[in-house]
Design a protein around this nucleic acid. Structure first.
Lengths: 342, 342
DNA sequence: TTGAAAGCGCTAACAT
DNA sequence: ATGTTAGCGCTTTCAA
């Protein structure tokens, strides 16, 4: 690889001049500029960003640490992050934890060694994890989940609203007996969705039937198992299942169908998060959309503000609104009865 | 940030000694080792990988350039890549082209500036793109697609086999009239799948009905539109549609259902690639699985061999086998007639 | 307007 | 066994 020294020799100028023309950091006469540019072209020279980073103490690199890129919730977020990183001349490192908590710790360490300019951390739920992050001294913003009392840079959605919206829609459709399949309440988003369900029920003048509340996590397996459990144990079946995530809804619908229960004719199902598959699921899923791309985008935009440090140092929390997506897994009850009798 | 100099001062040893204990690159007495480690702990010191990279001429970083991380074909591949990068102490940069060809060129440039140790390029189809890659001088391996006469490092699957397998399965089910919805034949994988369809038909003693061959690309929109076209124009309907990708199959099924045509009762549909959603699609899709995670994994393993340069410099092409996945979108024709008459 | 030189934090050859 | 030092490729101050 050619270096600046090579260029300076070929162009017969000083190395400082080469630097100046490359970075437009000082006026250089047209003649010398020309000579330098010719030499650069001749040698197919590209500046060494590593050397530059060492001197500048900035790598023009941000990293995202995500829990699982195979989970369809994240690719859109990653795309949003990469898009704004690219637009700002930054490179984007992806760190996929793959459910290995030791790996989280290790990635943090690597990112301080590699001198990443900033981090976005999807799904930091526990204070211990946050402490690890703080200890790195790196700039960062949290994305999606957050630890209980966290009040610094954060981008997420209004999870409480997701379930309030769901319940409101369900109530408007005539449903009154609503089961809730909760996520892991250790997780902020799951907690908020559960709270939203309760407040939503209250707002609609409905009461939460404890016998129809099932705890689990965001996976389809959880939805599947809780449905089996409900089918086996509940004294009365609900008219509709409100799931904490689309995957949970998928699992629920699978279990329902295995038992010959039709969705939405016999029991309706409501999702949450608008998984890219939901539109074409066995039964197209009524759900609540989360602006995933926007979340990723805003997370690294916020990170850049933090990095530039220009912004007044007030920590900012950005909370985006979800929106209802009506499809086929929930229907107006009146119409329903008509269908059932045919 | 603390530096080695700080450590050497605190531990009262030379900077070379610090380096030696950190890298285990030379014997250091237990006493000095102890002092150095204490100082490191005391200052929460982490070596600066940028400085190290400058000296070592290696960044311990690989990059993947992919066409679209939101396409469900890629997350598993990305996971495979990140897993082996991590396992080998390398960092992983993700470059998402997002269908902007200028961005491809730009990413290559950045990666030479940032001194990436190697590149894996998903979906390089054209010689001009390959020329750009070659021009960087970086080590690389191609993944999935490849330009026509390319014979260097490559990891992909046997695409010809995918469709041969499909046709064989379809024939065994009793189907004889098979439509083919092709991908963009500029793309190696689409070309191979189309060839496999033809040879598969030949092997089964079936003939390809040109009126039932439709050209398009891998998107569901393409499948949707070609189905509409077929429904409107074809003199005879096929018994089954063999699609070049699962997305195409999704689009086809959607269009079929919109016209009141049942899948698989009236017309069956066969996919190709085993999209993560296919299992739970409106009608669970019979398809051919591509080992996506393995592809990503092997791609960076091959890249590491290339980087280490230990391997004899023979270019290697790894072609993985696909495997049939039987679900519900195709059925035994005999059983079918039974069902239809009920 | 241009050039010389110091220094970013590290590794390794060499000296002791 | 440990220390001194040059140098990786760049930016930037300072001098000319």
């Amino acid at each position: 690889m050619a270096t600046m020294k090579d260029i300076s020799r070929i162009a017969d100028v000083s190395i400082a001049t080469v630097s100046a023309v490359i970075n437009h950091s000082a006026f250089v006469s047209p003649e010398l500029t020309e000579r330098v540019n010719n030499a650069i072209r001749e040698l197919n020279y590209r500046p060494n960003a590593v050397a530059r980073s060492l001197k500048m103490k900035s790598t023009k690199t941000v990293a995202a640490i995500v829990t699982d890129i195979e989970n369809p919730y994240y690719p859109a977020m990653v795309k949003g992050m990469d898009d704004v990183a690219f637009a700002n001349g930054f490179s984007f490192m992806l760190c996929n934890i793959a459910n290995d908590s030791e790996r989280f710790r290790k990635y943090l360490e690597v990112m301080v060694e590699k001198q990443a300019d900033g981090l976005v951390l999807a799904n930091v739920s526990r204070d211990e994890e946050l402490a690890l992050v703080e200890r790195t001294g790196l700039k960062y913003v949290l994305l999606n989940r957050k630890p209980p009392a966290y009040d610094k840079n954060y981008v997420g959605i209004n999870n409480t609203l997701t379930t309030e919206l769901s319940v409101k829609h369900l109530a408007s459709l005539g449903y009154r007996s609503i089961a809730y399949f909760a996520g892991n309440l250790q997780i902020s988003t799951a907690r908020e969705r559960w709270e939203g369900f309760q407040s939503g029920m209250h707002q609609q003048g409905l009461k939460v039937d404890e016998a129809l509340v099932f705890h689990g996590n965001y996976t389809s397996q959880s939805g599947y198992e809780n449905t089996k459990k409900m089918l086996a144990e509940a004294r009365r079946m609900p008219e509709v299942i409100c799931a904490a995530s689309d995957l949970v809804a998928f699992g629920a619908i699978k279990a329902l169908r295995e038992s010959g229960i039709r969705v939405p004719e016999d029991i309706a199902v409501m999702g949450n998060d608008n998984n890219p598959f939901s539109e074409n699921f066995i039964v197209p899923l009524t759900t609540v959309d989360h602006p995933k791309y926007e979340m990723g985008k805003l997370a690294v935009e916020l990170l850049f503000k933090e990095i530039e440090g220009t912004e007044q140092k007030l920590a900012r929390q950005i909370v985006l609104p979800p929106s209802l997506v009506v499809r086929e897994s929930c229907r107006w009850r009146g119409e329903l009865y008509g269908l059932n009798s045919s």
